[in-house]
Amino acid sequence: MEFILPFIIGILFSASLYLILHRHFFRLILGLILSGLATNLFLFVIGRLTRGGSAIIGQDESVAVEPFADPVPQALLLTAIVIGFGIQSFTIVLIKRVYQSFGTTDLDDMNTTDQIDENH
């Protein structure tokens, strides 16, 4: 499992990027969420994994005994997930508003603010 996970994460990253590079809004948002997911897994996996033992000190002990899962990536991950949630939901709403205002789902239609205004 530990050996396969990196590949799974790679696949997730690939998939997310491919979705983002699509011109469709909906796929963009799917890609972003997927990419957030892949990042979280990346963060989780790259700290060392411990199967089974969670990061909770047993009722009878006063210190955690090995093997226990590294709580640091977990804590970071929790924070990251929640932050990601905030940003994701904002993005979803943004895309909804964009669709409402522009009436298009094609990202390529949105290239006006980068244009150079003609002056000559």
Binding site: M1, S54, A55, V82, F85, Q88, S89
Partner: peptide
């Protein structure tokens, strides 16, 4: 599987909420 129940719970709940938001919005 890898000993992170808190993360798992959060992930589950957040995922549910995200789906809800999706349904509400999109």
């Amino acid at each position: 599987l890898f000993g992170a129940p808190d993360v798992a719970a959060t992930q589950l709940l957040i995922e549910t909420l995200t789906v809800v938001i999706f349904v509400l919005i999109l």
